[in-house]
Computed example of a mutant assay.
Amino acid sequence: MSAAENTPTPTSPASGARASEPTVSRSEVRGRVWQQLPLLLGLVVLWAVLWGQFSWLNVLTGFLVAILVTRVLYLPPADISGRLNLWYSFVFLAYFIADVTLASFTVAFQALNPRPIPTSSVIAVQLRTRSDFVMTLDAIAMSLVPGSIVIEVDRERAILYFHTFGTTTAADVEKMRAHVLVVEARIVRAIGSSDDLARINETEATR
């Protein structure tokens, strides 16, 4: 055997880099597109609402703005699970409307009541989900209910800080904290991932 046959064939850095690069299949690309599609559609709807009318021009410009915002501005990826439970979505919306209606009458009564306004508090609620999307929906849902508003979000530790009325005692604070977790559970059961759903079921089963 000659020396030339024993000599290993050198590998160029470029070919080695190409070999080590992870390959992304077409199915994975399609999955990412479908995951981001609800976010893009939401931005298009928001754009049309801001303009006050739905037209082909608004939809087209809204889509272009949505692409620009999601590509140019750095934002954490919005991981959408892709699962949807219609029944629990209806349950969440029904309870949300009921909460808004009841809280509106309660806040109006407190505003007209000559007695002092009940004690307000700032409370921290440790969520069980690890989804930014679910955390955002929970914060929006609670902030839209009169009498409570999110003042800070600790994304790394999944903690929401609320300013809320009617928390005179420690029991009132715990009741408010439990209500936030109930809303979180409704959202997870409606659109959350399988991991978040299992985490919710596990924590509720151990109570």
Rank of each mutant, 00 (worst) to 15 (best):
A139P: 03
V183C: 06
H179N: 12
T129P: 13
P114V: 03
Q35D: 13
V150D: 00
V188C: 01
A185L: 00
F105S: 04
E184N: 01
Q53D: 10
V45H: 12
G16C: 14
P77Q: 08
T106H: 00
F162A: 03
N113E: 06
N201A: 14
P77N: 07
A19E: 12
V100W: 02
A178K: 11
T203L: 14
Y74F: 13
T136W: 02
L50N: 04
W87K: 13
N6S: 15
D195G: 12
N113S: 08
S27E: 13
P8M: 05
T167G: 09
L75G: 10
L93Y: 08
L197G: 03
V24N: 10
S120D: 09
M135D: 06
R128E: 15
A78P: 14
H179F: 05
V44N: 08
E204I: 04
D196N: 04
G82K: 05
L181S: 08
I191Y: 03
S148E: 04
S20E: 10
L137F: 14
I151P: 08
V69N: 01
I80D: 05
D154M: 02
M1E: 11
V91D: 07
S120C: 06
T206K: 11
T23D: 06
V188Q: 01
I159F: 03
A171D: 14
E28K: 09
G62H: 04
R71C: 03
D99N: 02
V107C: 02
T168W: 07
L37I: 06
N6I: 12
R30H: 15
V100P: 07
R83Y: 13
G192W: 01
E5C: 11
T169V: 00
A205R: 12
L68E: 09
G192K: 00
S20D: 12
S120T: 10
Y88T: 06
E156L: 06
R155Q: 11
S25D: 06
T168S: 13
L46Y: 01
H163N: 03
Y88R: 06
P38G: 01
D196G: 05
H163T: 05
L73E: 09
L86D: 00
A190Y: 01
L197Y: 05
P8E: 04
S194G: 02
P38A: 04
L60S: 15
L40I: 06
W47G: 00
V122G: 09
G166C: 04
I151V: 12
V59N: 15
G82T: 11
W51D: 05
E28T: 10
R155G: 08
N58A: 13
G16L: 15
L84N: 09
S12P: 05
F162S: 01
R177S: 05
V59W: 14
D79H: 11
A111P: 05
S104L: 04
A158W: 07
A111E: 09
V153Q: 02
I123Y: 04
E152R: 11
A171T: 12
A3I: 11
T70W: 03
S27N: 09
Y74E: 13
